[in-house]
């Protein structure tokens, strides 16, 4: 068993990944910062035991995605910053389109897509992280991919 490390170490190691997930999910920099911060606060307060580094990472992703879900639910009409959101991340103009298309997808499709294509998780791991069945994860990924393709082609190509 592995005990969770110190706050600084955890933020250094997983901060970028969690921030990316929260930013793409919430489409708002300040909200993403809040979600990441609350995730790390929970991490140090709960101080859970992890079987390995992957377990620790998956735990953080689960908490962060739940936080995002929570925030979206409670603030369904909060301001998004899609126009300027991706400025300042050295993303090429031609690359930003696909991220913008991703951000516009419903949350249920966005998360599996991010975990699969960006964080390279396998389907069974996604189903564990999201707490859904394997078939549901597969279906969401498949539909999400289709939706992303349609949206990207329609609006950004």
């Amino acid at each position: 068993m592995q005990k969770c490390g110190c706050a600084r170490e955890a933020v250094e190691r997983y901060g970028d990944m969690l921030y990316r997930i929260c930013l793409l999910s919430l489409r708002n920099t300040a909200d993403a910062e809040d979600a990441v911060q609350e995730t790390f606060i929970k991490y140090v307060q709960k101080s859970p035991d992890f079987s390995d580094g992957e377990h620790e990472k998956a735990w953080l992703i689960t908490v962060a995605t739940n936080k995002c879900h929570d925030m979206l639910r409670y603030r369904t009409r909060h301001k998004t910053e899609s126009e300027e959101l991706l400025y300042g991340y050295a993303i090429e103009k031609e690359e930003s389109g696909i991220l913008e298309a991703l951000m516009e997808l419903p949350e249920k499709y966005k998360t599996p897509l991010m975990l699969f294509y960006i964080d390279q998780y396998k389907l069974d791991e996604i189903s564990d992280i999201m707490g859904i069945s394997l078939s549901a994860a597969k279906m969401r990924l498949s539909r999400g991919r289709k939706l992303l393709k349609e949206k990207y082609r329609k609006e950004y190509m």
Binding site: C6, A7, R8, A10, V11, E12, G15, D16, Y19, R20, L23, L24, E33, V36, Q37, F40, I41, Y43, V44, Q45, L86, G88, Y89, A90, I91, E92, E95, S96, I98, L99, L102, L113, M114, Y117, I118, Q120, L148
Partner: peptide, 28 residues
Amino acid sequence: KKLKNAADKIRMPEDMKQRIISAAELAE
């Protein structure tokens, strides 16, 4: 690949990272 390449460029700004570390360390 395009999706991954673009997303990988999203990194937490340094000042934000320091704020989060401070908050987490305080909570710790």
